[in-house]
Deep mutational scan, measured.
Amino acid sequence: MDALKSAGRALIRSPSLAKQSWGGGGRHRKLPENWTDTRETLLEGMLFSLKYLGMTLVEQPKGEELSAAAIKRIVATAKASGKKLQKVTLKVSPRGIILTDNLTNQLIENVSIYRISYCTADKMHDKVFAYIAQSQHNQSLECHAFLCTKRKMAQAVTLTVAQAFKVAFEFWQVSKEEKEKRDKASQEGGDVLGARQDCTPPLKSLVATGNLLDLEETAKAPLSTVSANTTNMDEVPRPQALSGSSVVWELDDGLDEAFSRLAQSRTNPQVLDTGLTAQDMHYAQCLSPVDWDKPDSSGTEQDDLFSF
């Protein structure tokens, strides 16, 4: 819950932080000083300027060897085509990944977070970031790969997607708890209302004896509580940590079903599988986004697919 609360507080303090972009060759504004600060901008989305290598189908939802083989196929196909790589912007948030063309600003792909089953910074092609997700059109699994400016960037994108998945799962947990509370309150309110109706004398007997209905007592009954809980029953509950912020979080049926399955089948359902080692994760978390744009010590960066 700490990640969720800190993310909400950060967004309320400075929503404009989320509009910064990394990996864009110096076009961005001043960047936060450390990885923790940038992680807090996830709610509205972190932007990464990358190059799209392509996509291939895979048979399993996750796995280092599986993704490595898929990336190898994608890279080989991209090299064989001889075409310049498409420059894209990857927007990562707890909602998922939005992929747009840098030149036309046209939407290429919009992947809900619950469809993503794996992401990684490839070991062999260490400047490549990739994720595996279920197609929104059918049940097939797709591996999408992107060329980053350097290994640090690939690791940073991988960690960002993993963190977005974690925050999304926490949102789901909060929403589920809130819905259970509202359902319980609604049920209790309905029981109270039913009890009051059972003990209320029939209207005919009131008229016969000349008694008047006590409207004041009726007004004191917990009807307002019942209506408050039943009027918006169809509205999706939102985490309290975000009250007053500009973010509107809505959970669709697909996300609810997917996270429910994860909660039942996995020990740590909030953790998205990645190909990063503990050492890689520690190294990337210690980086400032400013470091992502620094040239690798191995030599001059080449803006070309064939540089790796």
Rank of each mutant, 00 (worst) to 15 (best):
K62D: 05
Q163H: 15
M153V: 12
S135C: 11
D256A: 05
L255F: 04
H125W: 00
K176R: 15
Y118M: 03
K87P: 12
V58I: 14
N232A: 05
A145D: 00
E109Y: 10
F165A: 02
D280T: 08
K19P: 11
V247R: 01
P289H: 04
C286Q: 10
R266N: 07
I108L: 07
R95P: 06
A258C: 06
A69C: 06
Q187M: 02
T120K: 03
Y52V: 06
L223Y: 02
G96Q: 08
S298D: 09
L107Y: 10
S245T: 09
D280L: 05
F306R: 01
E257F: 02
A228F: 08
N110M: 15
V58C: 04
Y283H: 11
T56W: 09
M46T: 12
N105C: 05
I132K: 01
S246E: 07
S140T: 15
F129V: 15
R238S: 11
A221N: 12
G275F: 04
N102P: 12
A80L: 15
S297E: 10
A168I: 12
R266E: 06
L213F: 04
T120E: 01
D191Q: 06
A69W: 13
L193R: 11
V167L: 12
D122T: 00
L255E: 07
R151C: 01
D253F: 02
P239Q: 10
K294V: 15
D256K: 05
N268L: 03
A195V: 05
D304C: 05
L212Q: 07
L85I: 07
A3K: 06
P295E: 02
A258P: 04
G54W: 01
G244D: 03
T77Q: 09
L31N: 07
L57D: 07
A263G: 03
D101C: 14
N110R: 14
Q155G: 03
S67E: 02
E170M: 11
Y52L: 05
R13N: 14
K184P: 14
V248C: 10
D101F: 15
V128P: 00
D253V: 05
I98S: 01
S81E: 11
L17Y: 09
Q197V: 03
A3Q: 10
E142I: 10
W35Y: 11
G24D: 11
M153P: 01
L53W: 01
L147M: 00
V128D: 01
A10I: 06
A133C: 11
K152P: 06
H125G: 00
A7P: 13
S265G: 07
L66S: 07
L31E: 06
I97W: 01
T277C: 08
L147Q: 00
L103F: 12
A263N: 04
Q270W: 02
F259H: 12
N232E: 06
V75W: 00
L203K: 06
T218H: 04
N110D: 07
S93K: 15
P201L: 08
D252G: 12
L287P: 06
Y283Q: 14
D2P: 03
A156I: 11
S246H: 02
A195F: 01
L107K: 09
Q139F: 05
S14H: 09
V128W: 00
F129P: 00
V88Y: 15
N229T: 07
K184V: 11
N229V: 04
K184G: 10
Q197I: 04
E177T: 06
K184L: 14
K179S: 09
S16P: 09
V75E: 00
A10Q: 15
L212D: 13
P295A: 15
S6F: 14
G96W: 09
P201E: 04
D293A: 07
K87E: 09
D291C: 11
L159V: 06
P15E: 11
S6C: 08
D191V: 09
G194V: 09
S245M: 07
N232T: 08
G45V: 14
D126G: 00
E180R: 15
P237C: 09
S6N: 13
Q187P: 09
E235A: 14
K83Q: 14
L272H: 06
Q173N: 06
A185L: 12
S186A: 09
L255M: 08
V271C: 10
Q285E: 06
T100V: 05
E142P: 00
L276C: 10
T277R: 09
P237M: 08
Q86N: 13
I108H: 04
G23R: 08
V111E: 01
K62W: 03
G82M: 01
F259R: 02
